[in-house]
Design a protein around this nucleic acid. Sequence first.
DNA 1: GATTTTAATTAAACAGATTCAACAACCGGA
DNA 2: TCCGGTTGTTGAATCTGTTTAATTAAAATC
Lengths: 339, 339
Amino acid sequence: MGQKVKLSTIAESLGLSTATVSLALRDSPLVADSTRDRIKEQARSLGYIYNRRAASLRTSRSGIIGVVVHDIMNPFYAEILRAIESELDRNRQTFILSNHYDSVEKQRNFIETLLQLGGDGVIMSPAIGTPAADLALAEDNGLPAILVARSVTGIDVPTFRGDDAYGIALATNHLIGLGHRTIAMIGGTDQTSTGRDRYQGYVDALRKAQIEVDSELRIPGPRTKQGGFEAAVTFLSMRQKPTAAVCWNDLVAIGLMNGIARAGLIPGKDISVTGYDDLEEAAIATPALTTVWNGQAEVGRMAARALLDKLAGSHAEDYLHLIKPEMRIRQSTSPHKAI
Amino acid sequence: MGQKVKLSTIAESLGLSTATVSLALRDSPLVADSTRDRIKEQARSLGYIYNRRAASLRTSRSGIIGVVVHDIMNPFYAEILRAIESELDRNRQTFILSNHYDSVEKQRNFIETLLQLGGDGVIMSPAIGTPAADLALAEDNGLPAILVARSVTGIDVPTFRGDDAYGIALATNHLIGLGHRTIAMIGGTDQTSTGRDRYQGYVDALRKAQIEVDSELRIPGPRTKQGGFEAAVTFLSMRQKPTAAVCWNDLVAIGLMNGIARAGLIPGKDISVTGYDDLEEAAIATPALTTVWNGQAEVGRMAARALLDKLAGSHAEDYLHLIKPEMRIRQSTSPHKAI
DNA sequence: GATTTTAATTAAACAGATTCAACAACCGGA
DNA sequence: TCCGGTTGTTGAATCTGTTTAATTAAAATC
């Protein structure tokens, strides 16, 4: 592989200066058309590779954007990522992706790496317990941050997420409307703002319908299929015999339905189940899952857009952007069977 | 945010040269212990951020490794990625992730970006139709490549994947052993080496059992749940009435089972279904899916290891590494019911 | 006390692009 | 012929660390 081809290689081979070559390759109007064409042709034939780190050292713009979420394997985040990806791609930004698995330390490492690489910005779904200081670290060093799906208190950073309390209330009301009175809430934690909002939405909806809230009906747990699957045992052995379940998300709901089916009951008929997020998978689950659309694609798209705008110099004054969830009614819920 | 803190800021504040500071921060034995401690302390208190692009400009080692697969949302790749991530993480490498969605062009763009950023290496599951030249582009410019899950002909690049023909034969033989004679093969394409290998494995197993191969029993299609779900219609309306299906992967199998259930039949009893990959999800599907373990975690781990070793200077002579698949028998397959 | 070793520090070149003030060449007009 | 105005090109500084040969200071040896 001979010597590395750089600007000066091209410049020398054509008897020009590196300044001209640099300008020509970036389509500067300062360079004569004929010169530009010759330079570009030469660059191609020499197999020139643009050295971005040299350039960004000078310009302090790297074209790199960091994205960090709890777990990219989780379809909920994956759908957000997909939207972010397509928006960033359109704008020729490279993105560096990472999971933090809710480790604040791993997340901080990621931010530091990004700072070292001279990232232009970061989009994150913050780890549980993220201190405002970690976001300040980024912002203070010229790395603007945008949050998705979760909030952090103590610092004003643009945040895009669904209106959780409202969304869970939609699901709960739907079940109440079908005649259910003993409704469990499955999965998730109460340690995040999301968790508290969702529980609150559930509680408020029950109260409004004059149904007593029984904390035993709350079964926290992992937000995964496995979590829902395992929760089925607890769920089915409760004294109060719930006839319906509001699940933290679609994964938990699908897992729970599998668990219910494994126990010989028919989900959607014997037990009504609602999900949350409206993943692609919800529509093809058996039975098709009644769930709440949570606008992942919207969230991702808007977050990416917001970051790009910020980098372009625009200055938004609003911080919290709540997407209004919508009900998607399918076959996993049905009217309460009078006994 | 005041002025940016750089090596010279620290150097001046302590009355030292940047050379000393640079050496001290990297724990060079050339610097006196007491000096090193003072420098590190000062760096911390000034909030110094190491500028990797400046450094890598000089050292031509960026600590960046690229990973590109068909689709990170697909659990099969996600499981490989998880393993790659943990291996690279342990070795403090940053990785840049991308989907190529089987677009050779998108994949080439990714390689170019990585070259521009001075990436140290790339792990890829090549897009369908990847020309050897694209891999040569990487290798020739000092970007060693490692392939996972798929092969590319015409160039010798270390490749880690499962033994597809063998694995599908396992599944097919399992069904034959249960008495099935009319066995369909659902999903996937014949345009990849993987596709051809898998079809071959299926055909060979049938031939060995003296079962006639009927090409109408081959239903190619998307390698997704949706794909399997939609294939159910075709599958159930076939003239030959297959009693079992070998699916391209677990996703297709789960989709197919959902489709079968939707049509009122019981997957695992009326129709036997095998998956492929043994995703985490396979065990909790309803019915639990009989499938073929394909060693995603192994593949990912080994690939990352191979790249790290290569970067460390070791020289392996073997290129193709095939992982031997294993059968995982669960409830989605049962003996053929004599009519 | 003079000389040799060893240890600690540094000056300066370097990596590869960007940028801007300065300069050259050429134009038409006076 | 001289001049102001364009258009095109370039020299040199700059961005921030790394590295090596050279220098200085201190310690060891005779």
